[in-house]
């Protein structure tokens, strides 16, 4: 215990915790919608797609963040526009992701500098964040939370009852593109400080657990946020105290170990149990 408190004296730990918390909050809120909209594959693909943008930017000598932004937002729009039904969406996301990874691989081969830097984008290390990158990430997390808050009602409506939403004149397809763009913004900024894997864990883990336990959307989002923060704090502390275990592995394990008993012993909350009406047939 004294070890853990001593750790807080190091600026890099504090930095990691601040950035991690900001990303955890933004990821938990958007992760809730991601899980309910069944867009988990897109959430997995976007950070990986960002890798291509970052590798391209490094190759051209510009800021990796710009490349990340450009390619993830482009991919988010492409996914939203091209994918219409469930089967379509699945395949489109897969094809776009493999294409982007191939592109990233080409940039990497052309760059022939140290792969370490680009590798860091894929697997990232939260413990190596600079103060500047940390501020930028916190700002982006705040921006995407604001975006979600703005879209909250129509997004919720179009997530749980798309048919009725269409009938009421809610721009459902525009909303799904906008949601993917928000996801892309979070992915772009979070990926370069914590890696594609850790970001995906924070997107899916807390939300998957929370939707099983509580019923109403605000409660689920709040619970997911709490869980996300808990995972980040525990995981970072455990990894820093141990010294050899990667942070992303710690957080991924905690998230999985919390989810498993909840999945096995808690009956899903009624609100989230049924798939949206038009998708039910494919289940």
């Amino acid at each position: 215990m004294t070890d853990v408190i001593a750790l807080l004296r190091y600026p890099f730990i504090v930095n990691a915790l601040v950035t991690g918390s900001a990303v955890a909050v933004a990821a938990a809120a958007s992760g809730y919608f991601m899980v309910c909209r069944r867009a988990t594959f897109a959430g997995h693909a976007l950070p990986n797609i960002g890798f291509a943008g970052a590798a391209g930017a490094v190759l051209m000598g510009i800021e990796p963040v710009l490349g990340l932004f450009a390619i993830t937002i482009l991919a988010a729009i492409a996914m939203g526009v091209l994918a219409r039904d469930l089967r379509d969406r699945d395949v489109t996301v897969g094809v776009i992701m493999t294409f982007a990874l191939g592109l990233g691989f080409l940039f990497l081969a052309l760059y022939s500098g140290y792969a370490q830097r680009v590798y860091g984008i894929l697997f990232g290390s939260i413990l190596g964040i600079s103060v500047q990158a940390s501020r930028l990430t916190v700002a982006a997390a705040a921006a995407s939370l604001a975006g979600l808050a703005l879209l909250y009602r129509p997004l919720l409506f179009s997530t749980f009852d798309p048919e009725l939403a269409v009938a009421r004149g809610v721009p459902v397809s525009l909303l799904s593109v906008l949601f993917l763009v928000i996801l892309a913004v979070i992915a772009s900024l979070a990926v370069q400080v914590m890696g594609a894997l850790l970001l995906f864990t924070l997107l899916v883990g807390p939300a998957a657990t929370a939707t099983r336990i509580v019923k109403s959307p605000p409660a689920a989002i709040a619970l997911a946020t709490g869980l996300g923060l808990l995972y980040v704090w525990l995981g970072t502390m455990a990894a820093a105290a141990n010294g050899t275990i990667p942070v992303s592995f710690c957080i991924a394990s905690i998230s999985f170990l919390v989810y498993l008993p909840v999945r096995l012993f808690v009956r899903p909350a009624a609100r989230h149990r049924e798939a949206p009406r038009h998708q039910r047939r494919t289940a």
């Binding site: 069944r38 990667p246 999985f256 798939a275």
Partner: peptide, 21 residues
């Protein structure tokens, strides 16, 4: 299918973490 989406996500996240470890 909807549940599977989430289960798969959890498995991916844990598997990649394990791989990195």
């Amino acid at each position: 299918a909807r549940e599977r989406d989430v289960e798969i996500g959890m498995v991916v996240s844990f598997a990649l973490g394990l791989g990195i470890f």
